[in-house]
């Protein structure tokens, strides 16, 4: 346990190792570690941003969906309204058409009836004439009396 030159030797080697560490070990390692720290910090920040973006996108999507739903609801409502309207219109048209047909049919019937009456009247006149001819047993001048008979028939 003698104090001797080892003391100085140890001091010199101490200085040597400290110098070596200061020159080649510490700055490189610390640099790498700080670089990684920055990287991690940036990564976390990016992740945060992404989270926020995601949240925003979700909100936007939800809003879009809601708007779309509202729009769809409006359209369906309009369509329903329009449907009802169309049905009403169709009903109206059908009714009008029916009425028109009915009127036309009535008119036709009336016309037919009138025509039949007319015909009947003509036939009655002829019949009356024939009857009268039979009754009178005489020849009546068709030309002279038909005018009279026609007048008579028109009055029927």
């Amino acid at each position: 346990m003698n104090i001797n030159l080892t003391l100085i030797g140890q001091t010199i080697s101490f200085a040597m190792f400290v110098w070596f560490c200061m020159k080649f070990v510490w700055p490189a390692l610390l640099g790498v570690m700080q670089e990684r720290e920055t990287k991690i910090a940036n990564g976390l920040e990016a992740a945060d941003m992404a989270d926020k973006d995601l949240e925003l996108a979700k909100q936007k999507a939800a809003q879009n969906l809601r708007e779309a739903k509202e729009q769809a609801a409006t359209i369906v409502e309009q369509a329903n309204k329009r449907g009802v309207q169309i049905v009403e219109e169709a009903k109206e048209a059908a009714r009008a058409e029916g009425d028109r047909l009915k009127t036309a049919a009535k008119a036709e019937i009336e016309q037919d009836a009138n025509r039949a009456k007319e015909e009947l009247r003509g036939k009655v006149a002829a019949l009356a004439l024939a009857g009268a001819e039979q009754v009178l047993q005489a020849t009546i001048d068709d030309k002279a009396h038909s005018e009279l008979v026609n007048k008579l028939a028109a009055e029927l």
Binding site: N2, G9, F20, V25
Partner: peptide, 29 residues
């Protein structure tokens, strides 16, 4: 021997261990 002597074992081991430290750490760095 007085002051002008060195402890070969002390210096040898401390230099060897210090060198291992430096080499390993410098390699990693």
């Amino acid at each position: 021997m007085g002051f002008w002597a060195v402890h070969v074992d002390t210096l040898g081991w401390s230099l060897a261990l210090g060198s291992i430290f430096c080499l390993v750490f410098a390699r990693v760095a």
